[in-house]
């Protein structure tokens, strides 16, 4: 009994000693203290500001004075369904879909090469090549693209040198996606979106392709599957989580961007620009808030679908 009593050492004195003892005795307390700052950040600053925004969307603007009425109403959401506003939503979401699909198509061969064939120094060059555009300023890249796509820009010059101006004109004559020149058409907007967000598609895709075991591909071929079948039934399903993870990036980034469509395109608004216009110049904060709810809802659906497809299993 005496020995047992000695095993419990007396508590150390001083505020640090005592608090250290208390923390050691209560592991849960320790965990709580560790998590408190990030939880406060996430809860108050992050979620809190989001909620403040959501609340705004249930207010409305007084048509007579232009002041915000702080009463619960769904009027602002009804306004969101006006054809002009619906246009903005459809335009933004469909651009995001097109950009995501084309990013997947362009990124797949690049990621596949990097995962399967690039070795040693080439792998480093590959990583550098993918990451390099991310290091330079976003605005500089977009202004550069504006010059490249301009009517008197380098791309038009190139087409002229190759005597292919007719081809470019034919493409630009297509209704909706075409326009007076590449830099004022949806086609141009999509090209720039694709360029800017492509690394975000390649990197997760490559990570998932590296995890596809080579012996499965060999087994598939041993069992008589042509390459197309192997791709369809082995590689693609196994690469799906990476593809979906990448598409979350490209999709949500396109959904939220308001700078690219402002510089390249036909001046038709995207969701981000509409938010900016309504809260910045019009003082119509409820409608701006309602507009920001749209990407949140769309992304919510998207993530739910992605989860069902198993995109987060690898996390």
């Amino acid at each position: 009994m005496v020995d047992g009593a000695l095993a419990i050492t007396p508590g150390r004195g001083g505020i640090f000693g005592r608090s250290s003892d208390a923390i050691w005795r209560n592991p849960k307390m320790f965990l709580f203290l560790l998590l408190l700052p990030p939880l406060l950040w996430l809860g108050v600053v992050y979620i809190g500001s989001l909620l403040a925004l959501l609340v705004q969307s249930f207010f409305s603007i007084d048509e007579f004075t232009g002041l915000v009425k702080r009463e619960f109403t769904l009027k602002t959401y009804r306004e969101l369904l006006h054809p002009a506003n619906l246009d903005i939503i459809v335009r933004t979401v469909s651009t995001a879909v097109v950009v995501t699909l084309s990013a997947a198509v362009v990124a797949f061969p690049i990621a596949y090469y990097a995962a399967r064939y690039a070795r040693g120094r080439w792998k480093a060059v590959f990583y550098l090549g993918i990451m390099l555009p991310l290091w330079s300023s976003y605005l500089v890249k977009i202004y550069a693209w504006k010059l490249i796509l301009a009517k008197e820009g380098i791309l038009n010059w190139l087409f002229a040198q190759l005597h292919l101006t007719w081809l470019l004109d034919a493409v630009l004559a297509i209704p909706i996606i075409g326009g007076n020149s590449l830099s004022v058409s949806y086609l141009g907007t999509c090209i720039v979106f694709l360029y800017v967000w492509l690394p975000f598609m390649i990197l997760p895709l490559q990570a998932s392709l590296e995890r596809v075991p080579v012996n499965l591909l060999e087994a598939s071929s041993d069992l008589g599957a042509e390459p197309v079948k192997t791709f369809r039934y082995v590689i693609l399903p196994l690469a799906m989580p990476g593809l979906i993870a990448g598409s979350i990036f490209t999709f949500s980034l396109t959904l939220g961007d308001y700078i690219i469509p402002q510089i390249i395109g036909s001046s038709r608004l995207f969701i981000g620009q509409a938010v900016y216009a309504h809260q910045g110049t019009a003082g119509n904060i409820p409608l701006a808030a309602a507009f920001t709810v749209v990407p949140i809802v769309v992304m919510g659906f998207y993530l739910w679908m992605a989860k069902r497809q198993g995109a987060f299993d690898a996390l």
């Binding site: 048509e63 232009g66 306004e79 054809p83 246009d87 038709r268 509409a274 216009a277 019009a282 409608l287």
Partner: peptide, 15 residues
């Protein structure tokens, strides 16, 4: 009022 100018001009630019 001005706020209608804002929303309608967005519509005009959107076609």
């Amino acid at each position: 009022p001005y706020y209608r100018w804002v929303s309608d001009y967005i519509g005009v630019i959107g076609g």
